Simulated assay, not measured.
Amino acid sequence: MNAGAGGRAAMLPCPVLLADIGGTYVRFAVLADPAQAPSPLWKVETADFTGPTAAIRAYGDRRATIRPRSAFLAVAGKVDGAITRLTNAPWQFDPCEIGKAIGLDAVRLVNDYVPLAAVLTVLDEAAPADLVRIGGGAERTGTRLVIGPGTGLGAAALIPAGDRFLIQTTEAGHIGFGPCARDDDLPWSGLLPAVGRLTAEAVLSGPGLVRLARATGAARGLPTAWEAPSEILTVAGTDAVAGETVRHFTHLLGRFAGDMALVFSATGGVVLAGGIAPRIIAALRTPGFHAAFEDKSPFRDAMRGIPRFVISRPEPSIDGLATLVRDGARFLFPSRDWRRVEADQGPPALATAG
């Protein structure tokens, strides 16, 4: 990383364009002033545009949009090179190119789980509109972990460091995944040929839910016609295969979340985000999820004490980006930064922002 270990990136000048860019949807807002709430929110499908510059221009053409001076882009991909690419869509990001094309003074790229980790510092655990508790022990201090099955599967840790927080991004969705118990009767052989190497994301994501439903139906001799995860979730209460699929998904998500909690010693809690978790809260409160989460012998007692939540705030990533702009000195996180004064000095620096 450039900018020195633990170095601080310069503040982004307001108004700041905030963008949460995933493989399926893009969400935009503008933070005109740190004391204000970001607005107006605009949600569009990623596939409707050829890339980030075209989408940003379309947002800027809307009547109510304030012209930004800088852009803070959270992208669902690995931010570690001069060019960043979405993992599950064909967009690519060159902050220098974006900055020049839009006429900005600065552009910052981060992984999309950086703002989801940051927003944990402002969510109210007593407010159901922010967080829904699904189980575990009482509030505790320590590292918090956010995990989100959506178009892909992301995870990041929020690690206390004195009076600041370190945000550790991961590529946890791409670890290998498979059976680990004798009574695991999932049709693993039906999942593996469809995707080659089986990863956590290949099962614990929107496409993974569809894949799991097809494999489950085939194993029961019941062909399925579902094409989207929303179709499965809508009928999970009435269709046997859909219901079984959600139970399998919930069990596996509990297993994965518990494994990640062990990896990061997430005593402060595990928080589920993404598009799927808020729709299966009832299933996440059942014993299947929690038994899988806690079945980490010899650490079952410790696992039982870890609090578990689902983010219910509607646009947590946009709020997380706004939090990082307002209170950036509290956080250390990896980012890719470009500023106009550096336009002719080679590729943008990979900084540890804060």
Rank of each mutant, 00 (worst) to 15 (best):
M1G: 08
A5Q: 05
V16R: 13
L17N: 02
L18Y: 12
A19H: 11
D20K: 05
L31Q: 10
P34G: 06
S39I: 07
K43M: 04
A47I: 00
A47M: 00
T50H: 08
R57V: 01
R57E: 15
R57N: 12
A58F: 04
A58D: 12
Y59Q: 07
R63I: 12
A64V: 06
I66V: 14
A76S: 14
A76G: 05
G77S: 04
K78Y: 13
A82T: 10
I83T: 12
A89S: 07
Q92T: 00
Q92F: 15
C96R: 06
I98W: 11
G103F: 13
V107L: 09
V107F: 01
V110I: 04
N111R: 11
P115F: 09
A117T: 02
A118K: 10
L120H: 09
G136F: 09
G137I: 01
V146C: 11
V146I: 13
G150I: 06
G150S: 08
A156G: 08
I159A: 00
P160S: 03
R164V: 01
F165L: 09
I167D: 03
E171C: 05
A172K: 05
A181N: 02
D184N: 01
L186H: 08
L186R: 06
W188V: 09
V195M: 08
L198Y: 11
T199G: 14
A202D: 07
L204I: 05
G206R: 02
G206P: 14
G208C: 07
L212R: 04
T216W: 05
L222W: 09
S230L: 01
S230N: 01
A236T: 12
A236V: 13
V241L: 11
G243F: 03
G243M: 03
T245R: 13
F249W: 14
L252C: 15
G254R: 02
G268E: 09
G269L: 06
G274Y: 07
A277P: 00
R279Q: 15
A282M: 04
A282V: 00
L284Q: 12
R285T: 00
G288C: 10
D301S: 11
A302Y: 11
I306A: 01
F309P: 14
R313V: 00
P314V: 05
P316F: 14
G320Q: 12
A329Y: 05
A329F: 13
R330L: 09
P334A: 10
R339S: 12
R339G: 03
Q345D: 13
G346C: 04
T352D: 10
